[in-house]
Structure formats: structure tokens, C-alpha cells
Amino acid sequence: MSALLYAVVGAVLFALGLYGVVAASPLLRKVLAFNIAGSGVFLFLVAMADRVRVPFPDPVPQAMVLTGIVVAVSATALALLLICLLRELSDRPREAADDGH
């Protein structure tokens, strides 16, 4: 039962995070929102591990979560680096992407 709860919470976090990526205006907030959405997916996956309990919880979702965290960390690092670079280049970190063309 608690697995279902975790799954639902994960899905809600995912949706909130997506909303944030799209709607938040500062770039840093977009990156944070992306991390929240990612955590939502991970939570959902961990809840899925509960499908099999005997003799031990399903290891596959946990492996996926571990890998996913690595990806999320590196993506976040790259995003932060680019934000710093952009600030350096333009002194204007907000939504500069729109006038890219």
C-alpha cells in the first residue's frame, strides 16, 4: 500500500517539476525544477521495486535509479556551468535563450 503512495507522490513530483521547467522564468529555477521532476521519477521507480518482495525487492528499478542519479548530477553540473558562462558573457542570465536567433 505504501508503495502505491510513493508511486503517486513520485508522479505528482514529476508533474510539478515539468511545470517548473516550463513555467519558471529564472534559469536556475528551471534547473532545480528539473531535479525535482527527476526525483519524482526516481521515487516512482523505487516504488516499483516493491512489486516483488520475495526473496528480495526487485533490483532492476534500483539499478535504474542509481544510474539516473548519476545522469542527473552530470546534467545539473553542465547546466550550472553554462549558466555561469552565460552570465560571464552577457551579464544577463534570465531567459537569454529567446533572442538566440
Binding site: G17, A37, L78, L86, S90, A97
Partner: peptide, 20 residues
């Protein structure tokens, strides 16, 4: 360049959105 980095950042966020 500012334009290239801005475009890359945008590309990154879109790409992450898609992957998620």
C-alpha cells in the same frame, strides 16, 4: 558566444525535458 551559449542552455533544458 552569448548567442551560442544561450542556445546551448536552451538545448540542454529541452533535451533534459525530453529525456525525463
Amino acid at each position: 558566444t552569448a548567442a551560442a551559449v544561450a542556445a546551448a542552455l536552451r538545448y540542454l533544458l529541452v533535451s533534459l525535458l525530453g529525456s525525463l
